[in-house]
Design a protein around this nucleic acid. Structure first.
Lengths: 225, 225
DNA sequence: CCTACCGATCGGTAGG
DNA sequence: CCTACCGATCGGTAGG
């Protein structure tokens, strides 16, 4: 939440609007999107109405709207801003762990931490967006699906790296294992946000630990926690 | 979807409206709620607007609205109708399995089947409703949470039954195991609805099988699938 | 169950 | 960035 590393890594997405973007305009835009992503995680992306957002930011509807071409463009911008935050808070920190088994654990751990310390007010932005948009079509849904899939794929790739390094048994299906540890983290988000269970994160961590130990080549204890 | 067993098990919920309810009125009401639950599973409970619903059913807004006192009452009625359908399609069929380990497997199996054969057009009604309402407050959110928790609790209770019967090792944490198998089924819904992965159900089933085998007292093969 | 209406809010535009 | 608007739709009501 706090660290402001890499201030200029923001993707230079092609604006359908004016080609001229001032530094101040970019800053305003980012502030709008931060508020929008927070609202979206609580009330849904469709709950981010232009009037609501303008009121919360103390600016006029049309003034705010000028930063985006249409509501769909606003939604896409919010999703991409949420992705940048996810990368900063989860993916990047996990990269500090050694490749392979350690990094798989770190990825899940930072993911759970990002939900637990409320990077977004309503829990994991992407899980909320996924369930909200999975029944629709169009570019917003596609973008949410693409980013969600790529995160799970990153988990699988790291599992494969662990197998190549000999940390995880070769016979294990990496896709299956990624499916299962991904499931545990998502379940923690669900249990925490809906049921208010604070031990959900500990449960997910324990599940991941036991699970990975059972496929680890280094195990010497049995499968029990 | 097809079977129409137990036609009169519908809960006699206290209508805040007229005390007189005709058989025809009840039938219309149920038809409204079936359409509403289907829409809600795809576009969200908040997407079930009175105008939209009236148009889809070919009746006037006020005519439809007369069946409910306010939008919130409509939402509560939709949730309870979805619960009846879930019980009919998942919980009741699972009760035909022998108590204990067999029934735990049957509960997950029927749950996955209900998503797979599209009982609701947009996948699991309750998972969509959970992520939509977890950031809100009020009676609708509470009802969704209560029903979701009770289903996971039912899984845990059945696991305990399996332990009492000696099918599952006594040292296993039933809450933890319920958390994990529940996670696998929810992940299958997520992967199927968002990513369109048809093998998600097989993955969840495989995960549950391997998982339960690892805690089963009857196991003789090793933990591999 | 209906028609006819209400104020509020939606996404979006015109013009500056 | 603003004010001032637009038609459409929202939840809801009056009166029958």
């Amino acid at each position: 939440m706090a660290q402001q590393t890499k201030p200029h890594r923001r993707a230079r997405r092609a604006s359908s609007r004016a080609g001229t973007r001032t530094a101040q305009g970019d800053k305003t835009r980012r502030e709008i999107l931060d508020v929008a992503a927070d609202i979206a995680s609580v009330e849904g992306l469709e709950g981010v109405t232009i009037g609501r957002l303008a009121q919360e930011l103390g600016m006029s509807k049309s003034g705010l709207f000028g930063h985006f071409g249409a509501k769909e463009d606003l939604q896409l911008a919010v999703v991409d801003r949420a992705k940048d935050i996810f990368v900063r808070e989860v993916a990047d920190p996990a990269m500090k762990a050694a490749p392979g088994l350690r990094r798989v654990v770190a990825m899940i751990d930072h993911w759970l931490g990002y939900v637990e310390r409320r990077v977004f007010r309503g829990g994991c932005f992407f899980m909320a967006a996924a369930l909200e948009f999975d029944g629709r079509s169009g570019p917003v849904r596609r973008r949410i699906a693409e980013l969600s899939r790529s995160w799970r794929d990153a988990l699988r790739d790291e599992i494969r790296r662990a197998q190549a390094a000999g940390d995880i048994a070769r016979h294990v299906d990496a896709d299956q294992l990624a499916f299962e540890v991904h499931a545990l983290a998502q379940e923690a988000n669900w249990a925490h946000e809906l049921l208010g269970e604070k031990d959900a994160f500990a449960r997910a961590r324990r599940g991941v630990r036991v699970h990975l130990r059972s496929v680890s080549t280094a195990r010497r204890r049995n499968h029990r926690a």
